[in-house]
Design a protein around this nucleic acid. Structure first.
Lengths: 237, 237
DNA sequence: GTCAAATATTGACAACTCGTCAATTTCGGC
DNA sequence: GCCGAAATTGACGAGTTGTCAATATTTGAC
């Protein structure tokens, strides 16, 4: 009994070891360069043992994606529950997104790498459900802040538009990061600070939706800095 | 001489045959399911011959991406040169983007599939340069319309902001399509018409940038329809 | 029309990949 | 110390990409 749980602990530990090794390899060599044989060699277990944890290569990397999603969700929730006006809280989620990319670069890059390859078809249903749940809960956090904005009278919006706005912010963030990672032309084209451009566009979109106070009436750069410090402080405790 | 060019024509023809076959296979079976052996069998040439056209599998799919980019660029240019107010022309590019996804679904899907896998590292330098050039010229088309907007006094903007706006539109479009293709949660979350949401967000962003006439002062839905018809008409001639 | 040299084409091959499963080792309870 | 259950292994089958000696074709000179 005590031994059984010790064994289970060992297995959990090993699973983490596999994931860590896989993540490192994925970042170094890309999805195609990620080899089950090499992982096995590195962790000094046989390949068969790895396949006791994961049904296939896709399932393994899907597990990586799920790990990453939990980290992101945690940061989003912390950001959304910060104090201030509703648009400040929306800004906070943007800051969290940026912080996530900055503080957890491995996680952020894995997330991108994996959106690319179609993993979910072959991954186990269990894993897929986990991912689905984390993704929807990330979106719900954002949608919650938007609803608070409407409730507070800072934002006028029908129900369908709320999802539209969330989709817009999400597209903007995801697209920008995806372009930063993959595009050949971005530097040549003269976007030297894409991260700053992203946050600026973020605010422009919120202005377009007339989320009050508008950026002409409020210093959201200061807000972003305040929140950034606060989120970092929270993390370190 | 005449014979040399005949031979060259044959080679060109075969290259197109390889690309067509590869595209079909890529769409059917995904990047991993795309096999050089199977392509060779299907076109009834040996694998060695394929490797005379392309340095490696990545180079082949990079060539597919380049083909796709030329189609996209063509549509962008046609859209940008349409008549009307500057913001209408900007809207036209958005319509072209949508039309591209609609009329050339194979090209559009290939474009997405390939952003995912990191192809460019291994592709030949020649191919990479071609891609870079097409991508920058797509962006230049958009930037040109923005500059025209500034010149016409419809839009107030510093130089750096122009690139920022282009980056914003591009992020929005790219991110939305990427999410549509890959996301598990999108339907569950209640975004039933993502394409419509994208075009709406498009206009919201332009409103945020105060590109006149604002969407409150002008019917851009009508504009989009007019341009859509016109672009389709142009294509069919 | 003939023939040698240049060019194009081939497919067996080496070296790798994923996922399986019979055989082996390790472990837990008695 | 011993036995049955559970975990671990790595050789293996079937697949992949990319290479290259051997073969087939085309070319240009005579």
């Amino acid at each position: 009994m005590a031994t059984a749980s010790r064994k289970q602990r060992e297995i959990r530990q090993r699973e983490l070891l596999i994931l860590d090794t896989a993540r490192r390899m994925l970042l170094e060599k890309g999805y195609i360069g990620l080899s089950m044989d090499r992982i096995a060699a590195e962790i000094e277990y046989s390949k068969g043992t790895i396949y006791q944890h994961f049904t296939c290569k896709e399932d393994l990397v899907a597990a990586l994606a799920v790990q990453t999603m939990t980290v992101r969700r945690g940061m989003f929730e912390a950001a959304a529950s910060i104090s201030g006006r509703t648009r400040e809280r929306m800004t906070a989620v943007g800051v969290a997104d940026q912080l996530f990319a900055e503080i957890e670069p491995d996680h952020a890059r894995v997330e991108q790498l994996l959106k690319e390859v179609s993993i979910w078809d072959k991954a186990s249903a269990e894993r897929r459900n986990a991912a689905l749940s984390y993704e929807t809960s990330c979106m719900s956090v954002v949608a919650g802040v938007v609803r608070d904005g409407v409730a507070a009278g800072d934002l006028a919006m029908s129900d369908g538009e709320i999802e539209q706005l969330v989709f817009g912010l999400w597209s903007l963030a995801w697209g920008a990061r995806s372009i930063m990672a993959a595009s050949l032309a971005i530097e040549k084209f003269g976007i030297s600070e894409p991260e700053a451009a992203l946050t600026a566009n973020y605010q422009v979109l919120l202005d377009g939706y007339q989320w009050r106070p508008l950026s002409t009436e409020w210093d959201y750069v200061a807000t972003a800095e305040r929140i950034r410090d606060e989120l970092i402080r929270q993390r370190s405790t």
